[in-house]
Nucleic acid binder design. Structure first.
Length: 456
RNA sequence: GAGGUUGUAGCUCAGCUGGUUAGAGCGCUGGAUUGUGGUUCCAGAGGUCGCGGGUUCGAACCCCGUCUCCCUCCCCA
């Protein structure tokens, strides 16, 4: 008995119409990246485990898919480590390779390896799938596409400004009516920890205040206490919960708060620059918001942090990014600053589906279908398709002689734009009846006229 | 990794405290209409009720296990 086939959890199949809609998203992102001077690269789906492990924190390591060693390599299993109860080490001996978890760390590896072949600042974009052994949920998959653009080898804030523009342009082009680019700076977060006298608790503190809008002020305080942050430090941090007003007002309030922290003030200065330049350049549809509680982002971020949320949909952030000063240092090339962003194509896809924002002909699968009236007529149509295909028109002949009704229905299902009808009388006259499937309008054309219609 | 929930036709879902041959809408196939679709009317096909085990005279329904979906936490795109 054959079992019903299935696919692993958190993965999806895509039908032609779905692929068409996804391609539209990828192309939109790609075209904007290109206009900002980014060039595409690709890296392998899997890397050496050592390249990935330890780069995303403890939580991240747990979510990395490992690839089991095969054949003779199985013998490398470190049974001593297993006996000693050292499971991570045992796991590493079993799996020397792992599926990439994001595109940024493999990119850092790529830059270090090819540093002598690249000119800096190096700007690349990369659109490839990544894998996470996460528990699937709405908008969370085990396999999904990231569309990254990064610049490495420059600490110019021009790039932060550019990335804000890119977020705005891509999402505006995709027709998303409203969205907010949240922006913060890791240096401001460091400053907060410094001012509170708990610098070494930076990560705990930032993770806690990040949850402010979710668990409220009391929840954050509870979490800080649980993490062992002193009451005194909590008292210093508390005023942050009340920060409000315009971006300028927030900056002023934070500047006062961080008065004693050089790092913190540097963060304010950077952020202010980016916000001012963004104002100068203007934005299409995006709203930009300085959010002190924005702390997300991997622990390798050191400067700006970005996150983009679409209005009026229940969906996590659709884009993220930030500056990392020493990611390549992990692979032996230090002193190189990078900044980058990522579009979560699968979440954007879900949002566009939910809001039904695709242009009408996104999923048209064929431009022109020749109806089949019989062997002689169909063979004549085959000759017409050959000529049309040579000039780039996608077209085909219905494969068998069937009822018109059936052939039209087939054309309809495939969202064919035009149906060409060549029956006995057209064949005699040397003409083609061309029907526009959308308007229902039908015209009799010569072969030359047909060509002219499609060549533009 | 922790907790909760769901699974019945291709899709969306009904199915009473366990009781004959498991239903609807949409879709599909054929016909009304032998050169015109997306509207209408008629007919038809399609399901080992997620999978495995148990209780029972009898299980879609009750129990156990397992997988999956969705949700909360964790974390993130």
């Amino acid at each position: 008995m054959v079992q019903k086939p299935a696919i692993p959890k958190g993965t999806r199949d895509f039908l032609p119409g779905e692929v068409a809609r996804r391609t539209y998203i990828f192309n939109t992102i790609r075209s904007v990246f290109k206009t900002y001077g980014f060039a595409p690269i690709e890296t392998p789906s899997f890397e050496l485990s050592t390249t990935l492990l330890g780069k995303y924190g403890e939580e991240g390591d747990r979510l990395i898919f490992r690839i089991l060693n095969s054949g003779e390599k199985m013998k490398k299993a470190d049974l001593e480590a297993l006996q000693a109860g050292n499971l991570p080490r045992f796991a590493n001996s079993l799996a020397e390779k792992a599926l990439r978890y994001d595109l940024t760390v493999p990119f850092a590896r790529f830059v270090v390896q090819h540093q002598n072949e690249l000119s800096f600042p190096f700007k690349r974009y990369q659109i490839q799938p990544v894998w996470r052994a996460d528990r699937p949920q709405h908008g969370r998959y085990q396999e999904f596409y990231q569309c990254d653009a990064d610049v490495i080898g420059s600490d110019s804030l021009f790039y932060e400004v550019d990335f804000v523009q890119i977020f705005d342009q891509v999402l505006t082009k995709l027709g998303i009516p409203g969205f907010t680019i949240k922006i913060n700076n890791r240096k401001i977060l460091s400053g907060i920890a410094e001012v509170s006298g708990e610098s070494e608790r930076l990560v705990d503190i930032t993770i806690a205040i990040d949850k402010l809008d979710k668990i409220g002020e009391e929840g954050v305080i509870r979490e800080l206490k649980e993490k062992g942050v002193s009451d005194q430090a909590i008292a210093v941090i508390s005023p942050l919960f009340a920060i409000s007003g315009s971006n300028e007002e927030r900056l002023d309030q934070m500047r006062a708060f961080l008065n004693s922290s050089e790092t913190g003030l540097k963060g304010i200065e950077e952020l202010e620059y980016v916000l001012n330049q963004t104002k100068e350049l203007g934005l299409e549809r995006a709203e930009v918001e300085f959010d002190v509680t924005l702390a997300r982002g991997l622990n390798y971020y050191t400067g700006a942090i970005f996150e983009v949320k679409v209005h009026d949909v229940k969906m996590g952030s659709v884009c993220g990014g930030g500056r990392y000063d020493d990611l390549t240092g992990l692979f032996g090339l230090s002193g190189v600053s990078g900044v980058g962003i990522s579009f979560g194509a699968d979440r954007i896809y879900d949002v566009l589906n939910e809001l039904n924002l695709y242009p009408a002909d996104t999923d048209a699968m064929l431009t022109l279908l020749f109806a089949n009236f019989g062997e002689k007529e169909a063979e004549y149509c085959m000759k017409l398709t050959k000529k049309l295909r040579l000039v780039g028109v996608d077209c085909e002949v219905y494969p068998v002689t069937a009822k018109m009704q059936k052939q039209f229905k087939y054309a309809d299902n495939r969202r064919v734009k035009f149906v060409a009808i060549v029956g006995e009388s057209e064949l005699e006259k040397g003409t083609i009846q061309l029907k526009n499937m959308e308007s229902g309008e039908q015209k009799e054309l010569t072969e030359t006229e047909l060509h002219q219609l499609f060549i533009k």
